[in-house]
C-alpha cells in the first residue's frame, strides 16, 4: 500500500516535472529558428552558381563541406570571405570543399562582390530563400561544418577569424 502510494506519487511528480521542463525548454529554444542541429544530417539542396552550374550538397559526399551563408550587405561576411578563400586554397586538395550560399541577391551584385574579393570557391545563390528556410538561418554570416558522411559537425554564427577557419576546416578534413 505504502509502496504503491510512493510509486504513484513519484510517477505523477515525474510527469508534471517533465511537462514543466519541456515547456521551459521549448519556450527558450523557440527564438533560435535554427532547424538543423549538430549531429543531424544536413538537409540536401540544389542551387546554381554564377556560371549556371548546379551544385548538390549530397554530391560532395566523401568530402568535408564548409557551408557558408552570406550576403553582400553583411559586413562581417565581407571581412571573413578572404580568410575563407585563403584556407580554401590550402584545403581544396585535402578533401574540404567550400560552398558559399548567397541569400536572394541578384547575379550582378554577387558577381561583382566575388570579383572585388577574388573569390575562387563556388558561390551559389538561394534565389527564393528555400535553403535559408530549410536551415532556419537568420543572422549572417552562418557557417555549417559538414563531415564526409553529410552530418553537421559544428555550427558557427558570427565573423570568423582566419585561424578559426583553418581549425574548422581541419575538423572536417576526411
Amino acid at each position: 500500500m505504502k509502496k504503491r502510494r510512493l510509486a504513484i506519487r513519484t510517477l505523477i511528480l515525474l510527469i508534471l516535472g517533465a511537462a514543466v521542463a519541456y515547456t521551459l525548454y521549448a519556450n527558450f529554444t523557440k527564438d533560435d529558428q535554427l532547424k538543423v542541429s549538430v549531429g543531424q544530417k544536413a538537409p540536401d539542396f540544389i542551387l546554381k552558381d554564377l556560371q549556371g552550374h548546379k551544385h548538390r550538397l549530397s554530391d560532395y559526399k566523401g568530402q568535408g563541406v564548409f557551408l557558408n551563408f552570406w550576403g553582400t550587405w553583411c559586413k562581417p561576411c565581407e571581412t571573413e570571405m578572404p580568410y575563407i578563400n585563403n584556407q580554401y586554397q590550402k584545403f581544396k586538395d585535402k578533401g574540404v570543399q567550400v560552398l558559399a550560399v548567397n541569400i536572394s541577391e541578384s547575379n550582378v551584385a554577387v558577381e561583382n562582390f566575388a570579383e572585388i574579393h577574388k573569390l575562387d570557391f563556388p558561390i551559389v545563390i538561394d534565389k527564393d530563400g528555400q535553403v535559408q528556410a530549410a536551415y532556419g538561418i537568420d543572422p549572417l554570416p552562418a557557417t555549417f561544418l559538414i563531415d564526409k558522411d553529410g552530418k553537421v559537425v559544428k555550427y558557427y554564427t558570427g565573423q570568423l577569424s582566419e585561424e578559426t577557419v583553418k581549425d574548422l576546416m581541419n575538423e572536417i578534413r576526411p
Binding site: L16, A19, V20, T23, L24, N27, F28
Partner: peptide
C-alpha cells in the same frame, strides 16, 4: 523563465 515557472507551479 520565472514567470513561466510560477504558472507551471500553479499548474502542479
Amino acid at each position: 523563465w520565472w514567470y513561466l515557472v510560477l504558472i507551471a507551479l500553479i499548474g502542479v
